[in-house]
Simulated assay, not measured.
Amino acid sequence: MHIPTISLNPGPATLAVRACHDGVLVLGRLCLRWLRLRRMQTTARTLGRLDDRVLRDLGLDRSELLSASAELHGLARRDRRPSLFGR
Rank of each mutant, 00 (worst) to 15 (best):
T5K: 09
G48N: 11
H73G: 01
G86M: 08
V54P: 00
A19Y: 06
C31M: 01
D22P: 03
P4V: 04
R53T: 11
S63H: 10
T43S: 12
P82M: 04
N9I: 15
L75Y: 05
P12W: 10
R36S: 08
R53W: 12
R87F: 15
A13P: 00
H73S: 00
M1E: 05
D57F: 15
R56S: 11
P4D: 04
V54E: 09
L55K: 01
R77W: 14
L60K: 02
S69T: 00
L30V: 11
R62N: 01
G86H: 11
L37Q: 13
M40W: 02
A76N: 03
D22S: 02
G28T: 08
R80T: 09
S63E: 13
L50F: 13
T43Y: 06
L25F: 08
R39L: 13
E64K: 00
H21P: 02
T46V: 15
R39V: 06
V24H: 12
R45H: 14
L30Y: 07
S67V: 05
R77F: 13
R87Y: 14
L27F: 15
R33L: 14
V54A: 10
H21I: 04
R87L: 15
H73C: 01
T43M: 11
A68N: 00
P4A: 03
L75E: 03
S63N: 11
S7W: 05
R38E: 10
A19P: 02
A16K: 14
P82I: 08
Q41P: 03
L84P: 00
P82L: 10
T43P: 01
A76D: 04
R45M: 13
L47W: 09
R33Q: 06
F85N: 03
D79P: 02
T46D: 12
S83T: 08
R87M: 09
R81V: 12
V24I: 15
M1Q: 05
G86S: 12
S7V: 12
L35A: 06
A68S: 04
L58Y: 11
L35K: 02
F85Q: 04
A13I: 06
R39G: 05
L66T: 01
L32E: 08
D79H: 15
D61Y: 11
G11E: 03
R45Y: 12
A19C: 05
L60W: 11
N9P: 02
R81C: 13
G74I: 06
I3V: 14
I3C: 07
L65Y: 01
R53E: 12
L15H: 01
